[in-house]
Simulated scan of single mutants.
Amino acid sequence: MDSKSFKQVGVWIDFSKALLIGYNKGNAELIETIDSPYESIKRIEGEGNDTTRFSPNSEHASNNEYRKNNISHNELNEYFKIMEAKLHGFDDILLFGPGTAKEQLRNRLRENKSFGGKWFSVQPSDKLTNNQLLAFVRDFYDKATP
């Protein structure tokens, strides 16, 4: 099926990737896998620790931490922009997965005026196989629609 034929979508999301599962009339289908540009642990080749040059004391940290945090924030922002573009054509959006990425994405989508008339649901979930992902979305929408 074409992704344009789905109006309901389930999104399994964490900070490393997102899986879009379309749902239509009892049929759940994996539409797309989106890899995240976000890396939680950064290590630059040849980089030492985050202490200053003249002091091995960890209380004298360098400005490296601020720069790393800024890079991580920008990568996460880019990831959520990609997700916004992918989810724009859907009316009902189910966000599920481990961690806090699903809540962060929901909050960002709610702030976006173009998602004003959309329906969101956030559900906790562990890591699942592809068949379990399809079953999770199918079961959720089967219970949600009369």
Rank of each mutant, 00 (worst) to 15 (best):
E47C: 03
E47K: 06
G48I: 00
G48D: 04
G48H: 05
G48S: 11
D50L: 13
T51Q: 09
T51W: 00
T52V: 10
R53W: 03
R53Y: 03
R53E: 03
F54S: 09
F54L: 08
S55F: 09
P56K: 15
P56G: 13
N57R: 15
N57L: 13
N57Q: 10
S58F: 14
S58L: 12
S58K: 15
S58E: 13
E59A: 14
E59K: 15
E59M: 11
H60L: 12
H60E: 11
A61M: 12
A61F: 10
A61R: 13
S62G: 10
S62R: 10
N63A: 11
N64D: 05
E65K: 15
Y66W: 13
Y66N: 11
Y66R: 15
Y66K: 15
Y66M: 13
N69I: 00
N69Q: 12
N69R: 13
N69H: 09
S72K: 15
S72Y: 04
H73Q: 08
N74P: 00
N74F: 00
N74Y: 01
N74H: 06
E75P: 01
E75H: 12
E75F: 11
E78G: 01
Y79M: 12
Y79W: 14
Y79E: 06
Y79H: 10
F80E: 03
F80C: 06
F80N: 04
K81T: 09
K81F: 08
K81R: 14
I82M: 14
I82W: 02
I82D: 06
I82A: 12
M83T: 02
M83P: 01
M83H: 04
E84V: 06
E84R: 14
A85S: 08
A85V: 00
A85E: 08
L87T: 06
H88A: 14
H88W: 01
H88E: 05
F90W: 08
D91N: 15
D91W: 10
D92W: 13
I93R: 04
I93D: 01
I93Q: 02
L94F: 08
L94P: 01
L94M: 09
L94Q: 08
L94V: 02
L95T: 06
F96V: 08
F96D: 02
G97E: 01
G97A: 07
G97I: 05
P98G: 08
P98Q: 10
P98M: 08
G99V: 02
G99L: 07
G99H: 05
